[in-house]
Amino acid sequence: MKKIVFFLRIFDNEDYMNDFLNGKIYMNRLSYFRKIEESSESNRADEKEGLCAFWQPESGVFKVNGHTLTDFAAPIEMRLNHSDNLHVFCLFAGATNASNLSDQSKLSEIKNDLSVSKECAELGDYYVLIHNTPAFIKRMVKAIKTRNFLGSTGLVNYYDPNSFSGEFYNRPAFNKQDNYKQDNYKHQKEYRFAVDTQVVGDDALVLDIGDIRDIASISDTWDVKIDLKFSNMRKSV
Score class of each variant (00 low, 15 high):
M1Q: 13
K2Y: 14
K3N: 14
K3V: 02
F7W: 09
R9E: 14
D12P: 00
D12Y: 00
D12C: 02
N13K: 04
Y16S: 14
M17E: 14
D19W: 00
F20S: 07
N22Q: 11
Y26I: 02
Y26P: 01
M27C: 15
M27I: 02
R29I: 05
S31E: 15
Y32N: 12
K35H: 07
K35A: 13
E41Q: 09
S42K: 11
R44S: 12
A45F: 02
K48I: 01
E49Q: 12
E49Y: 05
C52R: 06
C52D: 14
A53K: 12
F54K: 08
F54T: 10
F54A: 09
W55E: 14
Q56I: 10
P57G: 07
S59T: 12
G66F: 03
G66C: 05
T68R: 06
T70H: 03
A73F: 01
I76M: 14
E77H: 05
E77M: 11
L80W: 06
H82W: 03
H82Y: 03
S83W: 04
D84R: 04
D84N: 15
D84I: 03
V88P: 07
F89T: 06
C90R: 13
C90I: 04
L91R: 06
F92Y: 15
A93E: 13
A93L: 06
A95E: 10
Q104M: 05
Q104K: 12
S105I: 01
K106W: 00
S108N: 09
K111Y: 02
N112V: 01
V116F: 08
V116M: 10
V116K: 08
V116S: 11
V116R: 10
V116A: 10
K118V: 08
K118I: 07
E119V: 00
C120W: 04
L123I: 10
G124Y: 03
Y126K: 14
Y127H: 13
I130L: 14
H131Y: 15
T133L: 06
T133W: 04
K138S: 15
V141I: 11
R147C: 09
F149E: 10
T153S: 11
T153Q: 12
G154F: 09
L155Y: 04
V156M: 11
Y158T: 13
D160M: 05
D160T: 07
N162E: 11
F164A: 04
G166L: 01
Y169C: 08
R171T: 12
K176C: 09
K176Y: 05
Q177D: 03
D178A: 09
D178N: 14
R192F: 02
D196C: 03
D202E: 15
D202C: 01
D203Q: 08
D203P: 00
D208A: 02
I209H: 02
D211H: 00
R213C: 09
A216F: 02
I218W: 02
S219D: 13
D223W: 00
V224G: 05
L228Q: 00
S231I: 13
R234N: 13
K235H: 09
